[in-house]
Amino acid sequence: MSPFLRSYLTVVWFGLAAFLLAGLLLGLSALLRPSRPTREKLTTYESGVDPVGEGWSQSQIRYYVFALLFVIFDVEAVFIFPWATQLERYGGFGLVEMGIFVAILLLGLIYAWRKGVLRWV
């Protein structure tokens, strides 16, 4: 296996280690802790009064707009990173190219700003 893939295998081990550690501690806790559920104990917490209505509600459209903006800028970052590592080779040409790219994205941000979707109301 190539060293590159081996590094990713290490990542898998680390992820498993997290679940193993938490699993072990939760297992230990299961041996020690009591379990005496009552109806009152299992009600949803709402500052001590009986819960009103359902726990799940519909969320506002603003989350959708921010998520969309996030995707746009995150994809932009994906393009900037490889460019950033090779800037020395590209020189002035790369600089102008990226200047145009960032300017277009900045225009997008300004457009969203002017449209008023950046307000969290």
């Binding site: 806790s29 020690l32 009600t43 949803t44 917490y45």
Partner: peptide
Amino acid sequence: KWLQKEDIVPTNA
């Protein structure tokens, strides 16, 4: 202390 605390899953959840 935390190891001995009860693990509660509310009815609604």
